[in-house]
Amino acid sequence: MIRFENVGMRYGPGPEVLRDVTFQLEPGTFTFLTGPSGAGKSTLLKLMYLAEAPSRGLITLFGTDLATARRSAFPALRRRIGVVFQDFRLLPHLSAFDNVALPLRLAGRKTDDYTRDVEELLGWVGLGDRMNAKPPTLSGGEQQRVAIARAVVGQPDLLLADEPTGNVDPEIAQRLIRLFGELNRLGTTVLIATHDRGLIERSRSREMRLVDGRLVELRRG
């Protein structure tokens, strides 16, 4: 599914944010990525969702070597990845419904075809009555749930989430984790970057920890 070999990353002439990162995510696995702030978690995610190119090393995504792949192949790879951004990145002029439906529109699905799925999913994350609200009128937690619904709506092969429960109360957080678990059972490979120890302790999943840009395997799931 995903393989990193001796991957290093630096922004411009700055110091290396990631050093010799080597790991593999098997299809259908559930993994937590932890580490102190500034350890490079977001950078690692960016490399995985193709927002940045590594400074060195080899990344293989869905069997494609990114170093040798054509740029024109990237959009198709990106569509197989659902991302929950730390800052949500919702389109402020679109309703919650339209934000969630965006990946399906990009995949060329027809409105009639996905309306029910989107409504059901928004109900699941507790936003059944806020479907037509625009992001600026939603609370931080509500925006986060819209962002999560958008990431999972297309049942991606890979789900990457950056602190997806940072803004919600523990009850909703558990619900969202169950949603990720459900998706994982359906075959999606899930990787969640989080600080939430409670969340990790309650789960028996694999945990990888980033310290000073180096990856340490803490627990095999």
């Binding site: 927002a51 990237f74 959009p75 198709a76 990106r78 569509r79 197989r80 990145r89 965006l102 990009l106």
Partner: peptide
């Protein structure tokens, strides 16, 4: 610019 970047990130083709 943000919208362009997001659509790109979500796998939209340049043409779209």
């Amino acid at each position: 610019h943000d919208i362009v970047a997001l659509l790109h990130q979500m796998g939209a083709h340049s043409g779209f």
